[in-house]
């Protein structure tokens, strides 16, 4: 069920990227897609009623292994968020520059390169 939710989110993002004309909205769409994937990664490692994957000294190994969620996807998500942030920063700065040059945010107007 949760997986379906993240897929719905992914599709919403994809819809936004493909159909919206405003490049700011396109960037937002990209971010929605990214977060859908992040959600998906988290869900892979999640288990019902799990605890954070931090082993405190008073915790037995068996207990930890039984109840903790998978830590690896969380590490991935952290990295993925950083990458997403980099892309976001670059794309937003680019959007500003594009607005300076073209005077519009409409992606259909930004078509000098063709053929």
């Amino acid at each position: 069920m949760e997986y379906i939710l993240s897929f719905v989110l992914l599709m919403i993002g994809l819809y936004c990227v493909t159909t919206k004309k405003n490049i700011v909205k396109i960037i937002i769409g990209l971010n929605i897609m990214e977060y859908a994937i992040n959600l998906f990664l988290i869900l892979i490692g999640y288990r019902q009623g799990g605890i954070a994957p931090i082993r405190t000294p008073d915790m037995s190994l068996a207990y930890f292994l039984r109840y903790s969620v998978d830590p690896l996807p969380q590490a991935l998500v952290v990295t993925s968020i950083v990458i997403g942030f980099g892309v976001l920063a670059l794309s937003v700065s680019m959007a500003i520059r594009i607005y300076e040059r073209y005077g519009t945010f409409d992606i259909n107007e930004i078509k000098r390169l063709k053929g």
């Binding site: 990227v17 493909t18 004309k21 078509k111 000098r112 053929g115």
Partner: peptide
């Protein structure tokens, strides 16, 4: 083919998808 490359981003994205 050259005319098909209109320069409009959503079109390109649609091709890929």
């Amino acid at each position: 083919l050259s005319l098909l490359h209109t320069g409009i981003l959503p079109t390109y994205l649609t091709w890929g998808l």
